[in-house]
Amino acid sequence: MNEVFRDHKRVAAAIAAVVDAVGHQGFYAIVLETLGQYIDCERWLAIKYSRFSAPEFIVNTSLSHEAVEQYMSHLYRIDPLLRLVTEDRVPSVVTFSLMQNEDDSNVYYDEIFKSGQILDELTLMLPVIGGGYLGFCFDREYTLFNEDEIAFFTALYPIIVAAHAAHMRTESLEGLGALFGNGKVGVLTLGGDNRIIYQNPAWHALAGHAFGNETLEFILSQPELIAVHVEGLIAHWEYSRNVSASATSVRAVFLEQKSEGYIQTDVKEFFEQFYDTYHLSPRERQLVEKTLRGYSMPVIAEKLDLSLGTVRNYKQRLYAKLDITSEREIFSLFMMHMFGQS
């Protein structure tokens, strides 16, 4: 009974801290730090997934500047969370270790995690205005997230969503600055009398002077949430129900530059193209595939029923053919091929 009581106190304390953060300028950082304490995690980030634009970091205490640059340059295109958003089947709470077992292509994202010294990641996906999602991601270096931790976050999820919605309503007075103020998605909010309430810097940059009232009227004449191509951009609008409870007639219009998006092609096709490009033998193909899955040389030897010495010899010849010197370079070379940079 004492253990149950302690669990209830733990949940109540987390709820109190999350609710107390509503309206604070550092809401997202506060909530992430608060939740991280309850699962023994000191590395977290908040990343916003928009309908069409590339993801954007809102808070980051996990990835280095170099890792963020690599992610934003092209690696986001194999982010399993972006795949879930793209396919419109976003779970409330998920871990990377669970996603690995769901789709073969997720296995190779593990190499990106290793470069950031991440073993597992637990993520809460919160819906945001504009049809996107905000991922609260907690990273672990040495241990996987267990069922109790997943259950704890699952129990808290409705409270966190409600607190986030409440925070968005307070932020609406400032144009949702924490989510969109410095972002790449243009946002314009209009009152019931079509009076402009807010424009973020990205709206000014994307719309420019040529984006007049006729263009705006055309966007608003489309059904709610339907995307249209305007001036080389993608535009959509929606009523701000989740943002302004007292002003349901407020409309939010979004302008996005379409990113290359999640790679829809089967990863196996990229492997076949990669093998053909470098004229790899059947055995060399096996070595590349298993290396990218993160298997060590002893495990590869066991799986291929070869001696460790034979695997070393094969790898040396493979390295010479690819003009590389390490396993990490195999991954880099394959990523360059996947994204058309080789």
Rank of each mutant, 00 (worst) to 15 (best):
G192M: 07
M1H: 13
T277F: 11
M297G: 03
M336E: 15
G183E: 06
P127I: 02
T265S: 13
S62V: 06
A21P: 03
R89K: 15
F138C: 05
D139H: 15
V128R: 06
I112C: 07
C41G: 03
R328L: 11
S307H: 08
H337I: 02
S172F: 13
I129V: 14
Y108F: 15
T248I: 12
I30A: 09
I159H: 13
E3Q: 14
G309F: 10
V267D: 09
F96Q: 03
Y319Q: 03
A151E: 14
P201T: 06
E171H: 01
F57M: 08
A227P: 11
G175S: 08
H167S: 05
V243L: 10
I58K: 10
Q341G: 00
R51C: 09
Q25Y: 10
Y133P: 00
A235T: 03
H209N: 13
D20C: 01
G116D: 12
A16F: 11
C137E: 15
D148V: 03
Y278M: 01
G212Q: 10
S332F: 13
F274H: 03
G177C: 05
M335F: 04
E224C: 05
V288A: 08
F180H: 09
E147Y: 06
L81H: 09
T123C: 12
A210N: 12
I15Y: 09
Q286L: 13
E302R: 13
F27L: 05
L322K: 02
G261H: 07
E42N: 14
Y157R: 08
E147G: 03
R83F: 09
D79Q: 06
A67S: 15
A12F: 14
D104C: 00
V11K: 11
Q286D: 14
W237G: 04
K321Y: 09
D103E: 14
I58P: 02
A151T: 12
S92D: 15
H164K: 05
G181F: 01
A162K: 12
Y28A: 00
E56T: 10
F136S: 04
V250M: 14
T189E: 08
M72R: 09
T215A: 13
E56H: 06
K258Y: 05
D7P: 00
L84A: 10
S296Q: 14
E42L: 06
N182G: 08
K290E: 12
Q257T: 13
A29L: 08
I324P: 01
E33D: 15
E272F: 11
F138A: 04
R10D: 10
S296Y: 10
M336V: 00
E121H: 01
N242R: 11
F218S: 10
I196F: 02
M168C: 12
I300C: 03
G232D: 10
Q222D: 02
R328F: 09
V90D: 10
E3M: 10
E121C: 14
R169G: 11
W44L: 00
G208C: 05
S342V: 14
N182K: 12
G183C: 07
F5T: 11
A227R: 07
I47L: 15
G294R: 02
E147N: 09
D20M: 04
S307F: 04
Q341M: 13
T189F: 07
F270D: 11
L176R: 02
